[in-house]
Simulated scan of single mutants.
Amino acid sequence: MTRSPADLRAATLRSGAQSASGHLPALILSAERLAAMIAPGAHGLRRSGPGEDFWQYRPATQGDSARSIDWRRSARSDAQFVRDREAQTAQAVGLWVSAGQGMGYAGAPDRPTKADRAHLLALALAMVLLRGGEKVGLLGQPARAGRVQADRLAERIAASVPIPGDHDAPSPDMLRPNQRLVILSDFLTDTAWVDALLARAAGIGVTGVLMQVLDSDEEVFPYSGAVLFRSLSGAIRHDSRDAGGLRDAYLARLAERRDWLRRRATEAGWQFGHHSTGNAPATALSWLYQVLAD
């Protein structure tokens, strides 16, 4: 019996969905364990309003009720003071993880790929933020709160697939005012997009974090002798007869790239950090959460 094109497409989609969902339980379990290490809290807006934390004392004005007066503070002067609290509200956080072919690299069988580690960090961070009442979404998609959103994000992250080439970048048009972004990438390809993204972000009041995720081998360049280097897409190849002789130049270029990313981030009011897949993810997750909480 001949199957119609529609049936074939449906079968392909089901197969792809089953393949992607097969990784979902492990991803969720790992992310939940990692997220459990961080205690979430509400983020203050640094202005007076409903909240639990002390914000400031201010002189009482006409319209303030006697109940709002802080009599202990007022007793130390001739004026009356009101104790303001800091306003707290959910903030929208957008997550973006590079899908470039290079993110699929792992230098050893016992290490995760850069993409796997970035996906784990993104989902664990989302879980922590959602527990704290924040709204979270993938960049370009609605940011929502609640446990159901964690499940949605887990499904979408697990179903993500690499793009055909090495280079991947978020579109500045996907940014929305007054959100915070977390961008996870290896930043090893052309980084001209970073300037465009940060310029757009500065223009609409968006702040965030650039997090570079590298494999341990990319951090130290342990190669020597004859080595054929090529990108996972096969687009870039370099045949070296003395790989060890390239080490100093490579490490210098890596340091320059990080300095450039750090400067651009600082100028835009963003933060820059980096993480190696050979290190425990908890440190990177804690740093990401603290940066967003500041």
Rank of each mutant, 00 (worst) to 15 (best):
G133D: 03
S74Q: 14
F54S: 13
D64F: 00
G51P: 14
E256A: 15
H275F: 13
Q91W: 07
G234T: 14
Q149G: 05
A143E: 04
V227M: 00
W55R: 12
A124L: 02
E256T: 14
L27G: 05
L197S: 09
D151I: 12
L181D: 03
D259V: 10
T207L: 09
R241H: 07
A106K: 05
L129Q: 05
D7P: 01
E134F: 07
H119E: 06
R241F: 01
F81P: 00
I157H: 02
T277R: 02
R46M: 07
W71S: 03
T113W: 02
L285E: 01
R111E: 04
S286Q: 10
L181H: 05
P177T: 14
A79H: 12
R200L: 08
S231P: 11
A35Q: 06
D173S: 12
E219Y: 03
R33W: 08
A282G: 11
G203P: 07
T191W: 03
F54N: 13
P170H: 05
S98P: 03
P112D: 03
A150T: 08
E218V: 01
A99S: 10
V213S: 00
H43C: 10
L13S: 06
L214S: 04
R144Q: 12
I183E: 04
V148G: 08
R253W: 11
S30D: 09
R76C: 04
D195I: 06
A106P: 05
E218Q: 08
A31K: 02
F81Y: 14
L261V: 15
F272V: 15
G51C: 09
W287G: 08
D242R: 07
A202R: 14
V227T: 04
P164D: 13
A226V: 04
V194P: 00
R176M: 13
V182S: 01
I157V: 14
D110T: 14
L261E: 13
M103C: 11
G22R: 14
V82M: 00
A36G: 07
V291R: 12
S160Y: 03
D294E: 09
E218R: 00
